[in-house]
Design a protein around this nucleic acid. Structure first.
Length: 618
DNA sequence: GCGGATCAC
DNA sequence: TATGGTGATCCGC
């Protein structure tokens, strides 16, 4: 650092935080110990400087600095007050948490080392001794040779090339990684049949029972597991063994690659372990929260205790509870198959060259809708809410959502109901120019029949053997029956609308659907109402437009008219009536039975069908 | 409930 | 030449 030039101290600080941020989210990952971070940071900074990406990062960094200033101001105010009751509240909570401590399980987290790179090396042994990355535009992962140069996942390819000019970049082959991951799973299932896939290359196991049954210690068992995986798949894995999932996850990073670490199931050892652990090592504390905590003086999990009286007021109740569990080294001791988690959304998004032509944007939206339909069919869901995501050419991200009159999954519907959101954005940001577009369905309605029907109490006809369905046989069937059988009894009469009423509601549904189409046509392809404000002047003869929904005349102002229509469309009463009708009509009521609640675990893993899980950064 | 922000992988 | 995709959660309004 130049010390002879006088620089505004504040500017230097911002400079540094930005550089730190530009280093990327995987800074704490392994393989970086011998890297000169200062030099790497300088190269990344210079390679990025002036780009739109850089400008956006700079802007985000400034916002965060302001947010931190507000946090510090608030902390100063709090310090003037009597926080005895807050401290007592925290102490009571700690005592309460302590009662939940469970040291009776051996939980293991395993993590394949540089997984994608390792799989590629098996196919192409010549890669073993040279630095290479998987993924071209952006690195999804890279081998340990490349990491020595400062290359890491999430980094732009051209930046990585600056750090390591001889870097070889090879394309992704997701099917290959999935197949290899399956080989690994076939081995670990012997150690815990209910193991939990956390991603394509990570899993949690509870080996308590395995160790008891085989009269083997946890460390020995995991050494054996790792050896077996290596022998049979040629993949090396790292593992952490501890009393709960949070600790196991931290431990698996301790002796990476190809190593393991055990933290004893002992309260004081766990407390000592956490005391010196940097906050960033905990799953759920990222770059932002790390900076916020650092600003108030919390650098390690042990530091949390001394600030317990401030935390809930500064960061909220959830963060308070989470931080307390970090200080104590507590975490979940349950491990369960990923399929038993409830999926909450299905979505797709893609990046492209800057695009601002309204017709092109609509084509892109249509293509996105078609992609989403595929995923909705594959996962067997409809969505009650549809969410449009855009990223401007400046990298700013915006989302907009609507509640269509019925649960949707067909591309035509996805498109139909998302186009108005796009049009609105075009009004909001004249000359809208995008680099990314995405669609996502939430508030999912399952299209899988057996389970949902059982949940609502509809009985299956007696099966062929004549014996009634036991709960266990129902559960057993659930896993693999997706086919559309029609063996359900008629829906009990009392659950249906009266015929006349049902007919009426169906009519309402049909009418509303055709109305929506009409609205869409008139808004975006018709002559009376055009999204392009420039064309508006020519069609100002009419003073009023009739709302196609409520029939009431509205001022002939495009913006207000659209807003009125949105209001009409989203009227709760219509929505509910239509939703109920369409649900009953298709005999798929759903909300699938709530399966698992995610506790105060701040980790954001992606449960769901492991086969479909996409993982990019190993 | 909506939209922005953060996080994991 | 020029910085990802999928999914989850939390917060402020």
């Amino acid at each position: 650092m130049a010390t002879d030039t006088p620089i505004d101290e504040h500017a230097v600080k911002e400079h540094d935080t930005l550089k730190y941020s530009l280093l990327g989210p995987s800074l704490t990952k392994s393989g970086q110990d011998n890297v000169d971070q200062q030099k790497v940071s300088e190269i990344i900074y210079n390679a990025s400087k002036g780009s739109k990406y850089f400008n956006n990062e700079e802007s985000r960094d400034k916002n965060l600095t302001q947010k931190i200033d507000r946090i510090l101001t608030k902390k100063k105010q709090l310090e003037k007050l009597d926080l005895a009751s807050d401290r007592r509240k925290a102490d009571d909570y700690i005592a309460e948490l302590e009662l939940t401590r469970d040291l009776s399980q051996w939980i293991v987290h395993i993590d394949c080392d540089a997984f994608y790179a390792a799989v590629e090396e098996l196919d192409r042994p010549e890669l073993k001794d040279v630095p290479f990355s998987v993924g071209k535009g952006v690195l999804t992962t890279c081998n340990y040779h490349a990491r020595k140069f400062g290359c890491r996942s999430g980094m732009a390819g051209f930046v990585a090339k600056k750090l390591c000019p001889q870097l070889i970049q090879i394309p992704l082959d997701f099917d290959k990684y999935t197949a290899k991951a399956q080989e690994v799973r076939e081995i670990i299932v012997d150690y815990d049949p209910r193991f939990e896939s956390a991603s394509i290359d990570e899993a949690y196991l509870n080996i308590t029972e395995y160790c008891q049954r085989n009269e083997i210690g946890p460390e020995e068992a995991i050494e054996q597991l790792r050896r077996e995986v290596h022998e049979k798949t040629k993949i090396t894995i790292s593992a952490g063994i501890a009393a709960n999932a949070k600790l196991a996850k931290i431990c698996s990073n301790k002796n990476k690659p190809n190593g393991q670490f055990r933290l004893a199931n002992d309260r004081s050892e766990i407390m000592a372990f956490m005391r010196d652990l940097p906050t960033r090592k905990v799953n759920g504390i990222g770059r932002v929260f790390e900076r916020e905590l650092d600003a108030i003086g919390v650098k390690t999990c042990g530091d949390i205790y001394g600030y317990r009286q401030f935390l809930s007021k500064l960061f909220g109740e959830k963060a308070f509870a989470f931080l307390m569990s970090c200080y104590l080294g507590l975490g979940r001791t349950t491990v369960q198959p990923a399929e038993e988690y409830e999926r909450k959304s299905v979505g797709t998004e893609s990046t492209f060259g800057d695009m601002s032509d309204p017709v092109e944007l609509r084509d892109k939206l249509r293509a996105t809708a078609e992609e989403l339909e595929k995923d909705m069919v594959r996962t067997q869901f409809k969505g009650r809410t549809l969410c449009l995501k855009v990223k401007l050419h400046t990298y700013e991200v915006f989302t907009r959502q609507v509640i269509p009159p019925k649960a949707v999954y067909v591309a035509d519907d996805l498109y139909k109901y998302s186009v108005p959101m796009l049009s609105k954005l075009e009004q909001e940001f004249p000359g809208l120019r995008l680099r990314l577009m995405g669609l996502r369905c939430t508030h999912l309605v399952s299209m899988k029949k057996p389970d949902t029907m059982a949940f609502f109490g509809f009985k299956k006809r007696p099966n062929e053997s004549g014996e009634p369905d036991s709960p266990s046989s129902t559960a057993k069937r659930r896993a693999d029956t997706l086919e559309d059988d029609d063996g359900w009894e008629a829906i009990p009469e009392e659950l249906l609308f009266e015929d006349a009423e049902r007919q009426e509601r169906e009519d309402e549904l049909n009418e509303l659907e055709s109305l929506s189409q009409e609205i869409d046509k008139r808004r975006h392809h018709g002559k009376e109402i055009v999204p392009n404000p420039k064309k508006q002047e020519n069609q100002e003869e009419e003073e009023w437009w009739d709302c196609p929904i409520c029939s009431r005349p509205q001022a002939a102002n495009e913006k207000e008219f659209n807003e009125h229509i949105d209001l009409c469309l989203s009227r709760q009463t219509i929505r509910d009536a239509v939703q109920e009708t369409s649900d009953l009509r298709s005999r798929e009521p759903t909300p699938a039975p709530k399966k698992v609640k995610t506790s105060n675990d701040r980790s954001k893993g992606v449960p769901g069908d492991p086969k479909q899980r996409r993982l990019f950064f190993g």
